[in-house]
């Protein structure tokens, strides 16, 4: 290779390496701000401020969903396999919201420790299966969410 071209190749590689390093340092410094939500274990560790708008995400604990009979109010708990956060919400839940599925809630953590949500989003997993195959795997339904919960918890 011609020495001038070799020099330009080194310059190009240097450009890519240095800009990558710069962005890597920035994203590393901002890593908690880039997270879309706090996992419940962060709530348990008292790392989440009270009465400030934040997001919490985790698996909806099976059997924890209670709907009011005269309004749209609903109570449920979310977990990441380490801790649980009780959530209160009034409104229409997304179609994919279900026990054993992941959800992300936006709202404020009350002093009582209850998370008062103003928005509930369903976080679906990355598996796609036909209904017949899904029915054949009885009991496997919540396993995907447990996996997601573990993956969330392993970051901390």
């Amino acid at each position: 290779m011609h020495p001038v071209r070799k020099q330009r190749l080194i310059l190009v590689l240097l450009l890519v390496t240095l800009s990558s390093a710069a962005i890597a340092l920035i994203t590393y410094a901002l890593r908690q701000n880039i997270d879309f939500f706090y996992p419940p274990s962060k709530f348990a560790a008292e790392e989440v401020p009270h009465n400030v708008r934040v997001r919490a995400g985790g698996c909806v604990v099976p059997g924890s969903v209670f709907r009011s009979e005269e309004s749209l109010a609903v109570r449920f708990s979310i977990t990441d396999g380490v801790a649980q956060v009780p959530v209160k919400y009034t409104g229409i839940l997304p179609d994919l919201f279900a026990e054993g599925e992941a959800a992300v809630v936006t709202g404020k953590l009350q002093s009582s420790g209850v998370f008062e949500a103003e928005q509930v989003l369903a976080k679906h997993d990355e598996t796609y299966t036909p209904p017949e195959v899904q029915e054949a795997m009885v009991g496997d339904h919540t396993a995907t969410c447990q996996g997601a919960g573990k993956a969330m918890a392993s970051d901390y």
Partner: peptide
């Protein structure tokens, strides 16, 4: 070319973003 080369940093970030951070988007299928 220089702008395009600097921007390549973003590609692995897009690809791994769902694993590196808590996101609403599900991980790779």
């Amino acid at each position: 070319a220089i702008l395009a080369l600097v921007g390549t940093v973003n590609i692995p970030i897009i690809y791994k973003s769902v694993d590196w951070w808590n996101s609403l988007h599900q991980p790779a299928t």
